[in-house]
Amino acid sequence: MGWRVALAAAVLAASVVSHAAEHQHPAPTVLAPGYFALEFPAPVPGSYQLPPLRDAANGDVLDDAGNAKHLYDFFGDRVVLLSFIYTTCSDVNGCPLAAYVLKRVQDRAMADPNLRDQLRLVSLSFDPQHDTPAVMKQYGARLRAPEFDWVFLTGSSDAALKGTLDTYDQSVYRDESGAISHILRVMLIDKQRRVRNIYSVSFLHADTVLRDVQTLLLEAAKPAQ
């Protein structure tokens, strides 16, 4: 995992420089737990419940080839991890954390055929002005393993995405300079298109995410009562 820490450190360094330009006494950034080994034993898959939180909403999106799609085109046949991101996000504990954790999830799932064949990662940009399908294709190429089911989506416009973001409570604000602030959210969605967990910066870690995915797969494999 050395290269990953180096990557995070590089992003962190850039972030600290950026902060230093803004504040006389910048506070050091603390890397999110997702960058490190889990400080507690990961839960045992199947030993706990993930009650449905809500139905996962549909929405109009573009894939990285520019084709018009619906989010539901990517839900239902697999367990999905849906991440809301934008590619120019420089906060080390924001979108880069999501990319880092999902890549770790991908790497681990690649080694487990059951996970590899039943899990899909979906990264949806909420900055369609910059993140065109071509940009998402380029962004995805740096993260996606060739054999893994990880799709990179965007919207045709801010307006086209707004309804989708609202239904997922994904708040995004732009200041006068156009800079984006947002809350980091990754959604775990089961094959019935229900949100079963939501991860934010303090909670997003590959170990716990994978245990949750396995818990859903075990649940789905149980014979009907």
Partner: peptide, 12 residues
């Protein structure tokens, strides 16, 4: 505030 909104991890 915006930075902290993005990261939600202003522990220090």
């Amino acid at each position: 505030a915006a930075l902290c909104f993005a990261s939600l991890l202003c522990l220090t």
